[in-house]
Design a protein around this nucleic acid. Structure first.
Lengths: 190, 190, 190, 190
DNA sequence: TATGAATGAGTCTTCATTCAT
DNA sequence: GATGAATGAAGACTCATTCAT
């Protein structure tokens, strides 16, 4: 009769979301292959059974969490696209946006997790590819397809540098490189 | 029986190496978290006990396999450095070497596996970082530290593009981008 | 809403029967140990909760389903008894009735399920025994208790033969055997 | 350092046999569908892991246990065939042998378990069928195929009677019935 | 009353690790 | 030293049962 007995939440929608969110967090933290039902349940603050009630298999749950992470990545790319459209798709603007994004360690980790998982997951692969392509699209009009793709590749490189290296790339370095790749003038002189 | 025993006992070093090699292969193929003693023993063609005889824990064995993969990556970077030194560190030469390297799917996968694992493994992290740095070193003398680092970042991006995308980057695209990043002319050789 | 509620609430008796019927079907199809609340609810087209609303435990529900199957078996025996009374309890008539019954695979399966379950369930055991006895009763008056019991035993054997064998027993074989057991002529009708 | 630490048996053959034997016992006692790894391990006096070390799946273990039960049944049929060959395949001899067999409750249960399981298991089905056929074969030479098959069917009926009924069939009843079925004279007058 | 979300015990299975041989 | 049997702690998943709504 203590409050230990009170266990029901009765907000299935929220609970489902909590579980997916917990799974997404853990995927980012420990990797897709290392997450377990138990870890997810503990993180979400739900009993073990809840994780299997809402998702037929762990794979399904992982998939949904990954999709959620991918959606976040996509939203950030949208943000960059919008900002580029508003402020002009110059190396300077892009570099600033990228450095801003890089400051959000959580976002960087999420991005990395999605890309990493995409290697083995076809569905995620096309999502990850699409992200790069949409970034390239935003630059292609002004700089041509080829240079835009190269810039997107460089940006992917930035992501991994951020994950592996301790000292972050400077805005200047990024801007210069983008300018070189895109064949555009830099703010500061070379 | 002497013969059979000798075959079994002969060259513990070689056996050790076989086990590490098998583990490395499997890590590349199925991921660090999926490898097991049993898989490794089967792949290496050694009895299960051998995998625990030479390595105190699976983690230790995994670590050594990862180190071995990192050494391979390092060797490939050495190859690139040597070639750059011999043929001239131009975007054209570098692009050609990179495309050559990309053609070796096994090498690409190994590289990816190392980078992916490095995110969670401090020791590997510094190894992975060192690879990028040595590549940058090879370019810094001629193009300056900053441009060299940017080129190394772009090269990391190429790796991931190769893993995620279906159509590979052309030599021309890579060369142009490198030329832009390094501030070097595209078509002239050294 | 009144309508929807009424539809849901209408005739709890019928719903109860539906659940038992679904459980009985499933027991025949997949075996007593394999049935679950979920399977039964799905088969009966009722919500999961309904299966626990009407029956305290799954065992209770299973028990009732088994009783229902046993009642069906009993009804079929009644049919045979009636037919024997009307047409004469001769081997020929009995064989014909048996072959007819054997043609109904569902009935055969139900019979088998009841007998199989009866081995572990005392209550069912007496029901199963009673079935055999009532069949024997129908023959005892004319052929004596002992021969009648032997005939009933033979008839039980027929059931299992039908379950295990691929080629069914012919009416002739059954009639001959019954005639031999009952000490009655084969070809003459009553 | 107590003897609780001493756990190794190091007689894999025997351990395997023990596990199969335990599984067979339990199948007879609680039914094929109710046996679990845990029950088997407990019965065999081995740790849980041992049951999965020797058998890839529970199904495989169940299968082997069932085969072992079927082999026992086969051996008993062999015994009957031999005895019939030596003493003459008369109803009297057969009845005596059957009653003897029926006295071994364990054997009866094993037989029942095999037949029950055979309904769902094709491999076992043919084994069970073969058992009946070999019994029929032993009688066919003397009494003709048709009567021999009918006798085998009757004998199957006896098995189930023994499982369901409390008072066993008398030797006389069985002998009379067999004599009737086989068209052979009885020892005692009718 | 009727429903289905909630919980955790229990299932099969895998495997790191230990250690007898 | 080399081998593989032994063990039990997890892991994924299922489901009887409870009970909030």
């Amino acid at each position: 009769m203590t409050d230990a007995v009170r266990r029901r939440v009765r907000d299935p929608q929220a609970r489902r979301r909590d579980i997916v969110a917990a799974a997404a967090e853990l995927i980012v933290e420990v990797g897709v292959d290392a997450v377990t039902h138990r870890m997810i349940a503990a993180r979400a603050g739900v009993p073990l059974g809840a994780t299997t009630q809402y998702f037929a298999t762990l794979d399904e749950l992982r998939g949904e969490a990954l999709q959620s992470l991918a959606a976040d990545v996509d939203a950030r790319i949208d943000g960059i696209r919008t900002a580029l459209a508003e402020r002009g798709a110059t190396p300077a603007v892009l570099a600033e946006l990228l450095v801003q994004g890089l400051a959000d360690a959580r976002a960087v980790d999420a991005d990395r997790a999605v890309v990493t998982a995409a290697v083995y997951d076809p569905e995620l692969r096309s999502l990850a590819r699409r992200g790069s392509e949409r970034l390239a699209d935003a630059l292609a009009e002004r700089y041509g397809r080829s240079r835009a793709v190269a810039a997107a590749v460089f940006i992917d490189g930035i992501l991994w540098h951020a994950c592996i290296s301790d000292d972050p790339l400077t805005t200047e370095l990024i801007e210069s490189a983008l300018a070189g790749i895109l064949g555009a003038p830099t703010t500061t002189s070379d």
